[in-house]
Write a protein that binds this DNA or RNA. Structure first.
Length: 564
RNA sequence: GCCCUCGUAGCUCAGUGGAUAGAGCGCCGGCCUCCGGAGCCGGGUGCGCAGGUUCGAGUCCUGCCGAGGGCACCA
């Protein structure tokens, strides 16, 4: 990557000027940034600013010294000292051409870093199997999925995992709710518990069980019946969740059931381990975790007075399980309503003897559904929800994913179904996809005219000289760095913005530069540029889980459609 | 009350301590003999308030104001 090469040049210059600057000890970190203004060069570094105090000389003077020691390099055209002491570097076009060649040659692999040999687990969605997924889960799903994609591209070995909370009170309520509906279906008097689940989907689950067993379960002893229905009901919901996720293009390497942690004794062992470490104690008949030792507001219950372990106890067991699998990073994707649990989870990690820095929580704000400006109220208990499946039926996977990834995790999202459905500029996903389809169209057009893409190493790229062409080249060249950045910051939304930037630069290029002309060398160079842009857009969309179409339907009322 | 997140253009939002803070939407005006006009070009207004750290603060720290969320032997 070009930034690395530039940074190395600057480091060499630093080494060479160390004597003159009276610089002893370690060299400072060299940061390379892309200036906002063209006049400030292709890349810029602030080392001189950072170094000025240390060597006791004015920053501009330091920058001059470093500039004078920059090694000669075919990629480096010139360096300028500017502003308070920036060192601005102007490169030859060779680096832009190299980037384009790489994009075209590598295709789908362009922007993928070398393997780091580091392992990360991303645990996300992890919704209870008590009902269908909705938009809130959808945001969790796309954030986790995109972070996994992006970290994979950045060189991490990623494992995606879903944790089913299929034990505990909520599941019992779910089971009791399904059971009531099942019994009602066969004319047996039964009530859904007041704090149970009242949605229509509960009746659907009951119906599915009835379809399988008829009224056979009615005659079972109550305890056995409850267990059967809970088990089968949650399995049915789970299958439905998996199907929805599949459709949403979210895949997992592993599903872990909380039940297993209990049945295998891992929960008991984890609590025991906390006790041995001196971080668990008994009081009021319950077993407590000394969370206050780690900055939490209060101590937390591990085992209730009635002997039942809490979810937190299972979380501790899961933590032990995750650490035992040797990950370098453990990422949890949580809704902001769980921020209060962060301290105790990290505390648990420390108490169990692990490095809490390995545990990383990605929090995201809530999604509020609107329809044409009108708030869509949702209550899961009352069963008044718009399911993710319904949402996907109505607005589609691409628009849903892109929209949910187009805000920072910290920003709440107002998801207006009518707006996201619209194929308009309220909806940038189509702008980006259109860019991709347009390039595909150009390439088809060229092919029809008998103009094919030659191997890019045989093509002279020097004809790419206009501002629009160079801007597009730069965007393509920036992609690998953007991917690393998005991965490091766990901020996939940055790629959603970058995708729009890429598309915008392509659209301007398209408007200003005719690709297929009688000028053969120019045509060939521009075709290669278009092909590189296509790769870049496709790869960024791919990381977001959004399709890059070869063609799109023309809009009704599109004037270009009139004569076609 | 305590804790977390957020407050940037009329609206919705970007902006990992750097130079003149950006994009889309909306509004006004231009651009199709030609590869897809779902496009392109031009037009302008803004970092909630007050301190502090720094050569340099939208970004870091403190306080205040405002919005959302969390403070269970619930998830």
């Amino acid at each position: 990557m070009i930034e690395r090469r530039v940074a190395e040049l600057v480091r060499e210059a630093l080494r060479a000027s160390a004597g003159e600057l009276g610089l002893d000890g370690a060299l400072p970190e060299v940061e390379i940034s892309v200036p906002k203004l063209r006049e400030h060069g292709d890349f810029s570094t602030n080392v001189a600013l950072a170094l000025a105090r240390r060597v006791g000389r004015p920053p501009r003077e330091v920058a001059e010294v470093i500039a004078a020691h920059l090694p000669a390099d075919p990629v480096l055209a010139r360096a300028e000292v500017a502003g308070p002491g920036f060192l601005n570097l102007f490169l030859t076009d060779a680096w832009l051409h190299d980037a384009l060649r790489e994009a075209v040659r590598l295709g789908p692999a362009y922007g993928r870093a070398e393997r780091l040999g580091r392992r990360v687990q991303v645990e996300f969605v992890s919704a209870n199997p008590t009902g269908p997924l909705h938009v809130g889960h959808a945001r969790n799903a796309v954030i986790g999925d995109a972070i996994a994609n992006v970290m994979d591209a950045a060189g991490w070995d990623v494992q995606r995992e879903y944790y089913f909370n299929d034990a505990g009170r909520q599941m019992e309520l779910f089971g009791a709710s399904v059971e009531a509906r099942y019994l009602q279906r066969f004319g047996v008097e039964a009530e859904v518990p007041p704090d149970g689940y009242h949605g229509a989907y509960i009746a659907d689950v009951a119906e599915a069980i009835a379809a399988r067993h008829g009224d056979a379960l009615v005659r079972l002893p109550p305890e056995e019946r409850a267990a059967r229905i809970l088990h089968e009901g949650s399995a049915l919901v789970l299958d439905q969740i998996k199907a929805t996720l599949e459709r949403f293009r979210v895949r997992f390497d592993r599903y872990l059931h909380e039940r297993e942690l209990h049945d295998s004794g891992q929960v008991t062992r984890a609590v025991e381990r906390l006790r041995e470490a001196g971080y668990a104690y008994e009081a009021d008949g319950a077993v407590w975790f000394r969370a206050t030792a780690f900055g939490d507001d209060k101590d937390r219950v591990l085992i209730r007075a009635n002997g039942a372990p809490t979810y937190f106890a299972a979380d501790c067991a899961y933590l032990v399980d995750k650490f035992s699998r040797g990950f370098d990073r453990l990422i949890y994707v949580w809704g902001a309503d769980h921020h209060g649990d962060v301290a105790r989870l990290k505390g648990a990690a420390r108490a169990l003897g692990y490095d809490p820095e390995v545990v990383e929580i990605v929090l995201y704000q809530f999604v509020t559904l609107y329809r044409g400006g009108e708030l869509v109220r949702m209550s899961k208990r009352a069963g008044d929800i718009v399911t993710l499946d319904e949402l996907l039926d109505e607005v589609g996977v691409d628009a849903t994913r892109f929209t949910l990834l187009s805000r920072s995790n910290d920003s709440p999202i107002d998801f207006d179904i009518e707006l996201v459905k619209r194929r308009s500029m309220d909806n940038p996903v189509y702008y980006v996809q259109y860019g991709h389809a347009r390039i595909a169209s150009i390439l088809r057009h060229a092919a029809e005219r008998g103009v094919g893409l030659r191997p890019i190493d045989e093509v002279d790229l020097a004809p790419l000289a206009t501002e629009a062409e160079r801007d597009l080249l730069r965007a393509i060249a920036e992609l690998p760095g953007r991917v690393l950045e998005a991965a490091e910051l766990r901020a996939p939304h940055r790629l959603a913005y970058f995708a729009q930037d890429l598309a915008a630069r392509f659209h301007r290029f398209y408007t200003e530069c005719r690709v297929v002309t009688d000028d053969e060398p120019l045509t060939q160079a521009r075709l290669q540029l278009a092909a590189g842009a296509k790769v870049a857009i496709a790869n960024v969309l791919g990381l977001l889980g959004v399709e890059a179409p070869e063609a799109m339907e023309r809009l009704e009322g599109d004037p270009s459609d009139a004569g076609a």
